[in-house]
């Protein structure tokens, strides 16, 4: 795979990032007037029906044309340019952030950092926003985005469902390695799951308020009449099959972590033997551990067979709980009222 990624990467590493939009073409930072007074603090109009109106972004990230080297590459910046992802960075090669789609290399470096920030350097929150939009949460690794507003993004043109799925697949696949896509025809939405959380973060920003029309459609010139895609974080898949899969992945992950913990502990006891673990950070969940489990290494012996064994072990252990139960304090240690 190493040689592949070089091949892929080469074309943008060789050239400076182009300017996506010239500065004078950028829209005014003051939104169009929808109220009576302008609130400087929130950058919004108030007193009026300032309903969040949906729109189609006039800018769009064209991966092949826009990627390139920036100042960020020289400064070993790890974070990506938010404006680049929306296709509206006016700095080009002078930008301090990265101007390319996250590669496996970047993701490996980013995951050495912790989860408190997304790939654009914005702080995450404890909980999801009510509408599942925004930066997301640091409590959960979410690699799936929900794609809604598909009819609006197609200007209400009735396309066949396989065509719609194809378009979603085509646009989202360019922004990172996909794990699976599920287009739900009856609900008119799609769920796009990526290999890495970073890809999901990036594509969420890149595809929000974008149209699904392509230049060969005759509606292309009227694309701004529609409403853009609504890209949000997805909740857990309730499908039992998907949950089983998720469970298996989690079990594999915790096994890897156990091995790593033991390895680190051993290294601490015999520091002369092993210096390599000095990075002192957790396993990379996405890129590395999965690659490692595919390739031959210490984890190769741990197959799904062993996972099943582990599960059985868990059940066995549950029998003699009285030994192992740790005193877990409940949230409430006393009933809140006499009625209880």
């Amino acid at each position: 795979m190493a040689q592949d990624s070089i091949e892929n990467v080469e074309y943008w590493k060789k050239r400076p990032a182009p300017i996506q939009v010239s500065e004078k073409d950028l829209p005014s930072s003051i939104p169009p007037q929808t109220g009576l007074t302008f609130n400087l603090w929130y950058n919004k109009w108030s007193q009026g029906n300032s309903g969040q109106s949906r729109f189609v972004s006039p800018y769009r990230l064209d991966v092949r044309a826009h990627e390139g080297r920036t100042r960020g590459d020289k400064a070993k910046q790890l974070l990506f340019c938010l404006y680049f992802s929306k296709g509206m960075c006016c700095l080009g090669r002078k930008c301090e952030y990265l101007h390319h789609v996250p590669t496996a290399d970047d993701i490996a470096k980013l995951s050495l950092q912790s989860d408190v920030m997304d790939c654009f350097g914005r702080e995450k929150h404890a909980n999801y926003r009510e509408d599942m939009g925004g930066v997301g949460t640091f409590r959960k690794k979410n690699r799936t985005v929900y794609v809604g507003g598909i009819t609006g993004a197609l200007n209400n043109v009735p396309f066949k469902s396989s065509q719609i799925e194809n378009r979603i697949r085509f646009t989202f696949a360019k922004l990172g390695p996909l794990e699976r896509i599920r287009y739900v025809e009856t609900k008119n939405c799609a769920f796009v799951k990526y290999k890495h959380q970073t890809s999901a973060e990036f594509s969420k920003e890149a595809m929000s308020n974008q149209t699904l029309l392509i230049p060969s459609d005759k509606e292309w010139s009227d694309r701004s009449d529609g409403t853009g895609l609504l890209v949000k974080w997805a909740n857990d898949d309730p499908n039992p099959e998907a949950q089983r899969r998720e469970k298996e992945q989690q079990d594999q992950e915790s096994l890897n972590v156990m091995l790593e913990l033991i390895r680190k502990n051993d290294a601490k006891e015999q520091p002369s033997l092993e210096n390599t673990s000095s990075s002192g950070k957790r396993l990379l969940e996405g890129a590395e551990s999965e690659d490692r489990s595919l390739q031959s290494s210490i984890f190769s012996g741990l197959s799904s067979f062993n996972l099943r064994k582990l599960k059985k072990l868990k059940v066995d252990k549950a029998d003699d709980v009285q030994l192992k139960e740790i005193p877990t304090a409940g949230l409430v240690e006393y009933p809140s009222s006499d009625d209880d």
Partner: peptide, 12 residues
């Protein structure tokens, strides 16, 4: 992840 590892080991 820590909680998952602990519950796998402890059985509870």
């Amino acid at each position: 992840l820590r909680d998952r590892v602990l519950s796998a080991v402890q059985g509870s």
